[in-house]
Simulated scan of single mutants.
Amino acid sequence: MATTSAASWRSETAPETAIPERVTRETAPPPRRQRSEGCVRLAANAIEGLTRISDVAEAGALRVRMPRGDGPALEGVFVNTAGGVACGDHFTIAVTAQAGAHVVLATPAAEKVYRSDGETAHIDVRLTVAAGARLDWLPQETLLFDAARLARRFTVDLAPDATVLAFEALAFGRVARGEEMLSGHLEDHWQVTRGGGLVYADALRLSGPIADLLRRPAVAAGNRALATFLYVAPDAEARLDEARALMEGAHSECGASAWNGLLAARWLAPDIDTLRRDAVAFLTAFRGAPMPRVWAL
């Protein structure tokens, strides 16, 4: 009985097109899938000391709901009915606080950004704050899963005497479940103009081996949760000592600086729970008001 090697058996029995088909499947780009898109446009004005909706529009998977409140501010909660963000999704939020209005915005839970097979998800936020108005941007953290890809832009346009208070937190994997964001892509761009002039710009870009990058001492020293706080207001620089005092006793690495009519603070922690406890204590005291009710859920 004749014998053949494994190599010769494969070449004799496999169809001639087997190898080209396999190469094509491995090298072809991932298929273009139907992705989620969402858009919310919200505007509010002041009427006899109370802030009320003057315009609202919703499209796609993004909604805004206004819980009833007893105070003069209008509270809005953005809800992503898609249940999260994945490759190629695109969400847009545009909010205008008209003269004298006070708007507080939040999300009901962490925004989850899931793994991508190639495409990058986009989240674009634009806030416009008119003369004498105030806008507090207080979403809960953004949770990035392994292989997630996200590009986010946060743009604020302020009148010279307007106020914006913004907080954003990022968590790289769920530490409590032993998960880690090993690789992926993140772009996070902030830009603030006041009276038409640029007063603040910040950009964070992490791409490729995210876990290895976060372990570098000059990047995050192994920490896997970070947050940025920005307060732009006529009294911002005068509140620097207060902000630093509120950070005393925090378990996160944190610090604050003030310049050019704004105050910026950052937190860096091993996990999002530690960061949330420190940040919520700071925000509650600094704002002189409790966090939006959805933060307690």
Rank of each mutant, 00 (worst) to 15 (best):
6 A>N: 14
19 I>N: 06
20 P>F: 06
22 R>P: 00
23 V>D: 05
31 P>W: 05
36 S>F: 11
36 S>K: 09
37 E>C: 09
38 G>I: 04
40 V>C: 05
41 R>I: 15
44 A>Y: 00
51 T>G: 02
52 R>G: 00
54 S>W: 01
56 V>A: 11
62 L>C: 03
71 G>M: 06
71 G>Y: 09
72 P>M: 07
72 P>S: 13
86 A>N: 13
89 D>Y: 06
90 H>T: 13
93 I>Y: 00
93 I>A: 02
94 A>S: 14
98 Q>A: 12
99 A>T: 15
101 A>P: 04
103 V>A: 05
104 V>L: 08
106 A>Q: 07
111 E>M: 08
111 E>S: 07
114 Y>P: 04
118 G>V: 07
128 T>A: 12
128 T>C: 02
130 A>T: 03
131 A>E: 15
134 R>H: 11
139 P>L: 03
148 A>H: 02
152 R>L: 12
155 T>L: 14
155 T>G: 06
161 D>F: 01
164 V>Q: 07
169 A>T: 07
172 F>T: 02
174 R>Q: 14
178 G>H: 03
194 R>G: 02
196 G>Y: 03
200 Y>G: 03
202 D>K: 03
205 R>S: 09
208 G>M: 06
208 G>A: 08
217 P>G: 01
221 A>D: 15
222 G>A: 04
222 G>H: 04
228 T>M: 03
231 Y>V: 01
232 V>M: 00
234 P>H: 01
235 D>P: 00
241 D>A: 15
241 D>E: 15
241 D>Q: 06
241 D>L: 11
242 E>K: 03
243 A>M: 08
246 L>N: 01
251 H>E: 12
251 H>F: 08
254 C>S: 14
257 S>N: 14
257 S>F: 06
261 G>E: 09
261 G>S: 04
264 A>W: 04
266 R>D: 13
266 R>I: 12
266 R>W: 13
269 A>F: 11
269 A>I: 07
270 P>R: 10
271 D>P: 10
274 T>V: 14
274 T>M: 11
275 L>C: 02
277 R>H: 15
277 R>A: 15
283 L>I: 09
286 F>W: 15
287 R>W: 10
288 G>D: 05
288 G>L: 12
289 A>I: 05
294 V>M: 12
296 A>Y: 15
297 L>M: 13
